[in-house]
């Protein structure tokens, strides 16, 4: 083990010249697909206090994407919205707890997650390296758009106050939080990103041997000749390159011994965030839990509730 100061790390990510053009085109292609939002009640999971719905919408490439939507059974006026974006391997949570806190809560299941994997299903491990050496066909291109359209789904609901919507998630959810806060910068009211993944991806693969980043090492071990193409595709999709657009109040939390998403990359992406109202929480001796076991969940709840003023049930 070597002495180290992860805050001094300098990312090797570069911003491709066609980055903005590529994502404008990707978003235009996505918006050309009608969202077609659908909600189906799920009585089995609903309670006297919370209504649960299975959500469906259409996204990039015409794929049908699933999600869970929960809201208080009784409310007046409009509700603040809470978009929860999932981690890499975990299934999206059913956000009844957020509805109990007074939110209209949407938990997205982007492509490859169960219920959204009928067409696109590279699996886990697999998603991170799906077409990783083909810059415009990389698997995360559509995946990112699914998260963006999840936000559009939530903000389009009549009962949601579109001026009071937050985004939150950890790990891959942390990455998607930063993405949505970047590409919907004029609409996201506040955000909380934990242990953000998909940041300085090539650097991460050299900093750790844990999955999912180990997928990149696995790929390059078998295909060393593809390294330049891989770096090119990853630069085009690296969250590091989006976040200067973020305008909303935002908090980020990282574990200083995170073997899954090395803290070096968390410091690096935090430094790039455009918002002036930003705060980084670092937790010693924490790994990918990034402080959740020592009180960060309360910090996060207080931050989001403080900006959105939900009325708890």
């Amino acid at each position: 083990m070597t002495s180290r100061d992860p805050s001094e790390f300098v990312s090797s990510v570069r911003k491709p010249d066609d980055f903005d053009e590529y994502w404008q085109a990707t978003e235009a292609e996505t918006l050309a697909v009608p969202l077609n939002p659908r909600l189906q009640p799920v009585p089995l999971r609903s309670t006297p206090d919370v209504e649960v719905f299975e959500a469906r919408y259409d996204s990039y490439g015409g794929l049908e994407i699933a999600g869970w939507y929960c809201r208080p059974r009784n409310f007046e006026g409009q509700l603040p919205g809470y978009l929860f974006v999932p981690g890499y391997v975990s299934e999206p949570k059913l956000p009844t707890d957020l509805a109990m806190r007074g939110y209209a809560a949407f938990s997205a299941a982007p492509r490859n997650k169960l219920r959204s994997n009928g067409v696109f299903n590279p699996g886990y491990p697999g998603l991170l390296t799906h077409n990783i050496d083909k810059r415009t066909e990389y698997g995360y291109r559509g995946f990112y758009m699914d998260a963006i359209r999840a936000f559009d789904f939530l903000s389009g609901l009549d009962e949601v106050d579109s001026s009071r919507i937050c985004v939150q998630g950890g790990s891959q959810g942390g990455a998607l939080t930063l993405l949505v806060a970047s590409l919907r910068a004029d609409q996201v009211a506040c955000a909380s990103a934990g242990a953000p993944y998909l940041c300085s991806m090539m650097d991460s693969a050299s900093l750790t041997r844990s999955y999912p980043y180990e997928e990149i090492n696995d790929f390059l071990r078998l295909h060393p000749d593809r390294e330049d193409a891989v770096r090119d595709a990853l630069d085009l999709h690296d969250i590091h390159n989006f976040v200067d657009r973020i305008e909303c109040p935002i908090i980020v939390n990282i574990g200083l011994m995170d073997d899954v998403c090395p803290p070096e990359t968390g410091f690096a992406v935090f430094s790039q965030i455009g918002s002036q109202d930003k705060k980084l929480y670092t937790y010693e001796d924490c790994a990918h839990d990034s402080g959740s076991g020592v009180g960060h969940d309360k910090v996060m709840q207080s931050f989001l509730d403080g900006h959105l003023n939900p009325v708890a049930l």
């Binding site: 011994m257 995170d258 937790y283 010693e284 924490c286 990918h288 839990d289 990034s290 076991g293 020592v294």
Partner: peptide
């Protein structure tokens, strides 16, 4: 009893 610090608990 876990400390709630993932690195140490691991």
């Amino acid at each position: 009893v876990n400390l709630g610090k993932g690195h140490l608990d691991h």
